[in-house]
Structure formats: structure tokens, C-alpha cells
């Protein structure tokens, strides 16, 4: 596991030195501007506006980093041939994959935590207090982080066997499809052919269910998010990531580096 940690820390260092965390400046500006604006124009809905805006920004920025950097984690190392000297060391290919994933997950955690702190500062600015119900916002941020980890795992899987452009398209496509799994399960009855309905139902269970991670509405309205949902989403994300990374490692372990 030390070797996995070494790769992970180097991946984090790469993100920091490549100025990935500069997006925080953009986020800070958005939150400051919206807090000042909301403070002047909204009456009674400050929390809803700030939380919705903040969580959306955290999610979008996180998704962009996950997809674009996630795809490059493996492909960039192959293209630049930085991997050659590394794999000649006593490092297994699955350890490399796991280390890269952990490194980007660490980057996203630091990034998301910093953005969450910015969101709470903006919330405090407009409400002049932070209440117990605001913990729902923290849970929503945690769910975004789980979702991002899943996206990184998928991006890495695709980048193990296809070109970076296709890997981006596949990851984005799967993410969008994963936002509609409940609708896919609901497309039955007289609306479509029953066989197609059954197929869609099966597909919906295989697709990553990103809908479950979206609790933005509840967090914005200060509603409590049940602990069972937290446990269920955590278990689901860990299991799904483990499966996807196992497949990615298996594919990468057989890959010829030209």
C-alpha cells in the first residue's frame, strides 16, 4: 500500500503544480458576488439561492476536473512515456491505477472541502448564522464527492483502452445516462414495447445511478437527509468504484505500451 500512496501523493502534487486548484479562485469570486447580490435582492430565500448556486458550482467544477483530469491520469502517462521508467520499478500495474485514482480523489477532496468552506462563509454572510439544519449542506457536498469519485473511476476505465477524446465522450455519456435511471425504470406499461422496457430496466441497474447523489433541493430547504441514504450512497459508491477500478486494472494489466 506504500507504493499506492507514493503514486497518489505524486498525482496530488501534479494537480497542485499544474494549478488545478486555481479553480477555487473562480469559485470564491462566484460565491462572493452571489452573496452580495442575494443579500440585496432576495427576501427570505437567501439560503435556497446561495446553497443551490454553491452546490451547483461545486458539482460542475468537480465534474470538469474529474472527467478531464481523470481521463488524462493514464493516457498522459502513456503518451509522454513517463510510465516506462515507473513500471520498471517494483510497482504492479493495479497499484499504479489505484494510486492514480487515490491521488485525484485526494485532489478533489481538498478542492471540494475548500469550496464547501467558501459556501458556508457565503451562507454565514447572508444569514448571519449557521444552524444545525445546515448540516444537510455538508451531506450534499459529501454526496457530490462520492459522485465525483465514481466519475473518476469511469474516466480511468475508459482511458485504459481507448483514446482520450472517446474516453471523455463515454464518461460524459454515462454520467448523463446515470442521471435518468429512475426514468428508465419508469418507462414501462403501454408507453413502449414490453421487451424494450425490460431491457431498459436491466440497463438502468447496470448504469451508475447518479440521481441518488442529488440532494441539492433538500439541502437548500434545510431538510434533514436520512442516515440510511448516507450509508446506502456510501456503500453504493464504494462498491461501484471497486468494480470499475478492478476492471480498469485488469484491462491495463494486459495493455501493451507502445
Amino acid at each position: 500500500m506504500t507504493r499506492v500512496g507514493t503514486v497518489a501523493l505524486n498525482t496530488f502534487r501534479e494537480a497542485v503544480r499544474d494549478r488545478v486548484l486555481y479553480n477555487l479562485v473562480f469559485f470564491a469570486l462566484v460565491m462572493m458576488a452571489s452573496a452580495i447580490l442575494v443579500g440585496q435582492i432576495s427576501i427570505g430565500i437567501e439560503q435556497i439561492v446561495i446553497v443551490s448556486l454553491g452546490l451547483s458550482a461545486i458539482s460542475i467544477i468537480g465534474l470538469l476536473i474529474s472527467v478531464f483530469i481523470g481521463v488524462g491520469l493514464v493516457s498522459k502517462e502513456i503518451d509522454k512515456r513517463t510510465l516506462y521508467a515507473l513500471l520498471a520499478k517494483p510497482l504492479r500495474r493495479w497499484e499504479f491505477i489505484l494510486g492514480k485514482f487515490a491521488g485525484l480523489a485526494l485532489t478533489l477532496t481538498v478542492n471540494t472541502a475548500a469550496m464547501a468552506a467558501g459556501l458556508f462563509l457565503a451562507l454565514f454572510y447572508v444569514k448571519h448564522s449557521i444552524e444545525r439544519a445546515d448540516t444537510a449542506v455538508l451531506v450534499a457536498v459529501y454526496f457530490i464527492l462520492l459522485k465525483l469519485a465514481l466519475v473518476v473511476a469511469l474516466a480511468m476505465l475508459f482511458s485504459c483502452f481507448t483514446t482520450p477524446l472517446l474516453a471523455i465522450l463515454f464518461t460524459a455519456g454515462l454520467y448523463l445516462a446515470g442521471l435518468f435511471v429512475h426514468e428508465m425504470r419508469g418507462l414501462q406499461g403501454g408507453l413502449i414495447d414490453p421487451a424494450l422496457g425490460r431491457l431498459l430496466r436491466w440497463v438502468s441497474y447496470v448504469l451508475p445511478n447518479f440521481e441518488n447523489f442529488d440532494v441539492m433541493g433538500a439541502a437548500a430547504h434545510g431538510r434533514i437527509i436520512p442516515a440510511t441514504l448516507v450509508a446506502q450512497n456510501t456503500f453504493y459508491a464504494v462498491l461501484y468504484c471497486a468494480i470499475v477500478l478492478t476492471v480498469a486494472a485488469a484491462v491495463f494489466s494486459q495493455r501493451n505500451l507502445k
Binding site: 505524486n10 502534487r13 501534479e14 503544480r17 499544474d18 509522454k80 512515456r81 513517463t82 516506462y84 521508467a85 520498471a88 520499478k89 517494483p90 510497482l91 504492479r92
Partner: peptide, 19 residues
């Protein structure tokens, strides 16, 4: 993999992490 502790390798036209 354990054998790799005892080998050193220089790739052709090596490139390392430029950061």
C-alpha cells in the same frame, strides 16, 4: 515484480514528470 528491485532501466528518449 520482486525481481524488479534488482534491475535498473533507462527507456529510449526518456521523459519524466516535468513539474
Amino acid at each position: 515484480i520482486a525481481m524488479h528491485r534488482n534491475i535498473g532501466y533507462l527507456p529510449e528518449q526518456p521523459y519524466f514528470y516535468d513539474y
